[in-house]
Each structure stands twice: as C-alpha cells, then as structure tokens.
Amino acid sequence: MRRGLTWFNVSSIALGFAFLYIPILLLVIYSFNDSRLVTVWGGFSTRWYWALLENEQLLDAAWVTLRVAFVSACVATVLGTMAALALTRYGRFFGRTLFSGMIYAPLVMPEVITGLSLLLLFVAVDFDRGFWTVTLAHITFTMCFVAVVVQSRLVTFDTTLVEAALDLGSPPLKTFFTITLPLILPAVISGFMLAFTLSLDDLVIASFTTGPGATTLPMRIYSQVRLGVTPEINAVCTILIAIVTVVVIAASIVTKRAESQRQAEERAAMKG
C-alpha cells in the first residue's frame, strides 16, 4: 500500500491508457491510408490531406467554427471570470443560490435540452438564426466551465493580497488588474482554452441554434459520418487532434517549467 508502482497499479494505468489512446491512434494511422476503404490498408499516402484543401464546404465550416469559438471563448472568459469573482469574493447576495445553480447546472445539463431551449428562445424573440445565435449559445454554456475553473483558483487565492493593495491606496478596480488578474491568469487562460475547445467541439447545441450559412465543422463532419467512414474525415480529425495535442502539451510544458523554476528558487531561498 506504499506509494509506488505495484503490478496492479501499473497494469491498470497501462490498460486504461491503451483503451483511451488506441482508437485515436488507429484513426490517425488510417488517415494516411491510400485506399478509399478505411479498413483495408492500401499503403502510405497523404492524398486525403490534399483533397481537404479542395473541399470548400469543409474549409468554410472550419472557418465558421474558428470564428464562433474565438468570439464565444473571449466573451465567456470575461463573463465566467466575473461569475467566479461574484461567487467567491462577494459572500451572500440576493439570489446567490439561484446564481450558483445556474453556473453548475449547464455543466451536466444534457445538450439536447440546452440546445432546444436556446433555439426556442431565439424563435420567441425573433432573432435571426446564424453565426450570432450559435455564438450566444456557446457563450452561455462555456462561461459556466470558465467560472468553475477560475473559481477553483480563486478559493485558494490569498485575499489578504487584495486587502494589502487596498490598504496601500490602490482602488478596487485597479487592484483587480494589478494584483488579482496577474495571479489568476493561468486559470483564466485555461478557462479560455477550455471554452474554445468546447465551442470547437460542440455538435448538438450548434445544430439546434444554427441558421443558414453558419454550418460548423462538427455539423459537417457529423453529416458525413452518418453516411459512413471516409478517409477524408480521418484526415480532418487527425489535423484537429494534432493541433489540440501540440497546444495542450506546449501549455503544460510551459507551466511545468515555470513551476519547477519557482520551486528551485524557493529551495535556494531556504538555504540562503
């Protein structure tokens, strides 16, 4: 029961990771398959990637998706950070229970319900469906994820730092930008990244709330997947996986570096 890698721990981790990664790995391998039949290996080829460049529909959808993801992640980060501040810093205020309920509920709410209800709202207020309705919908559900990520950082935030800044003559708004924000920035950035990928990834809510000219990439992929597996889709997926993997690994290496440098400096300070 000591810390360490017993055969049981090693094998459960190994099996778990095999289960998580083999399907993705196979998908990536078969995107380089020369054959149109996705299950028969016909030799190495990058032809499906070149074919993508000519697929206007897919490229359009990718462009729409990126725009929606960027705009919604920006707004969601601002609103989510505000919500996190409201929940952690301001103690009790009128309707706090309702507010925290509205923050946590979207995290587990089935997407079909969120999507349907937002669509019916847009219809009821006669809002033209398209880019902006999808963006508004994405802001709404991703801001809650941002709020939770930022909130978990804020609860360990030493509020005496804020008090010290106020005590030294810095007004509240200025204190937020000079003290609080720089210190919670890593959480805010990961909140942004989470919002961005969730928006990039969303199929159901986008399908409900979209309108003419605002077909997103997941919707495009979905409609093709329903017709069967094609190597072209494998190629799109591989590109998306590659982008996400590179960004996530780079981000984690940067934070790990900063953390280990910090620890080294702290150790040096203890000795000196």
Binding site: L27, I233, C237
Partner: peptide, 11 residues
C-alpha cells in the same frame, strides 16, 4: 480536449 465527435467516430 480532442473532439468528442472524433472519439465516437473512431469507434
């Protein structure tokens, strides 16, 4: 972080 749809599709 990789797409939910992609992971289902892989299966």
């Amino acid at each position: 972080w990789t797409s939910f749809l992609i992971r289902v599709y892989a299966w």
